[in-house]
Design a protein around this nucleic acid. Structure first.
Lengths: 188, 188
DNA sequence: TATCGACATGTCAACTATGAAATGTCACTG
DNA sequence: CAGTGACATTTCATAGTTGACATGTCGATA
């Protein structure tokens, strides 16, 4: 399962509680790579602890348990990351699915959607660029490296989608009545 | 659920049997957007038919049932695509997760992974470019528009990841012992 | 000191998805 | 005409995910 490896990866950067990890998944990692809520995280941490891949290193206030990765956990993570990496693995992205299905819309609607995408990606990219420019740590302390790589990845992703949307707009005739390339079975 | 919308979208482009739809998910849509196997598709088609969003338009050999989208189905699809589109939606991508977790590796391993990514994305992009150059239909007949948009999306995706990997390689000191930027807690 | 919001974990039912296995048809080829 | 491979669907047990609900602590502030 990928969630377990995501947790190992985060803990490999710095020890954390389940609560903190849940927060982490609300950031870039949850936006681009893998989502998880606390309801899935806590039980998974328990399983990892059982398998000796992580361990509780600190009991804090409010029943807080700080987990850290073990040597065995690092080994497991490393072998997973360096292994096959072969074919796809899980892929599930609702936003991208929407983009793919654009061709199912009539040209006018399709253009509307693409324009929305172009705008949103431009905004998102600008915002991210702003955060990065501020030199502001894009990823708290110990996860600085992670945050940088992730932020740059996100940035390039936004730019790529933005450019794609502009290109796609160019492919679809402005005049809904037009003939041209992208043959689409219109609405009824 | 997104699967239902994915099916509506594909059927909006052309009628198809569950078997054909399953094949479709092995292509670009499954690679970038949404995975599904036939075991999930058949029951979902039945549910959609029950809700009147699709209907069987033809009974072929071997019990084949060709489905087509209905007017109600088109409406549902359109409103889903044009609606909010707001916050994320489901995101789950094992490959991207691997990229994010690279920072958890020691520099030497990280560089190895990044090099692998750079190579693979270059290959994939080249292959796709080849297919597109051949003018070969990148998406059979009725789905030509879909295939084009998807192929171009994939191409830009590969290029973006490729460039990112090269950038990331530049961030990680070649000398495993080096100091520099991306602070990483090394292997034990 | 009462209250509020962030911190922190947990349970559970419902839903979704995946893999293995089964079953049978049809077209083609040797 | 037997065999093979693509076509085509189904069932089912297991595993993974989500949302709703529950519970309680701690620190700051009004």
């Amino acid at each position: 399962m990928s969630l377990s490896h995501a947790l190992l990866g985060l803990l490999a950067l710095a020890p954390a509680s389940g609560y903190e990890l849940a927060k982490e998944f609300e950031g870039d990692i949850g936006r681009y790579a893998w989502q998880a809520g606390h309801t899935g995280i806590y039980p998974e941490l328990a399983k990892l602890a059982e398998r000796g891949l992580v361990q509780v290193t600190e009991h804090g206030p409010r029943g807080r348990r700080t987990y850290d990765i073990t040597a065995a956990g690092r080994q497991e993570l490393r072998s997973w990351l360096l292994s096959p990496a072969e074919r796809g693995g899980t892929v599930r992205n609702e936003q991208v699915l929407r983009m793919f299905l654009i061709s199912a819309l009539e040209p006018a609607d399709a253009r509307r959607m693409l324009q929305g995408i172009a705008e949103r990606t431009a905004q998102d990219a600008a915002e991210l660029r702003g955060v990065l420019a501020k030199g502001a740590d894009p990823g708290r302390g110990a996860r600085a490296g992670f945050g940088l790589l992730a932020a740059e990845f996100g940035l390039r992703q936004y730019d790529a989608v933005h450019e794609w949307a502009l290109w796609a707009l160019d492919q679809i005739p402005e005049d809904a009545q037009a003939v041209a390339a992208p043959t689409v079975r219109g609405l009824v």
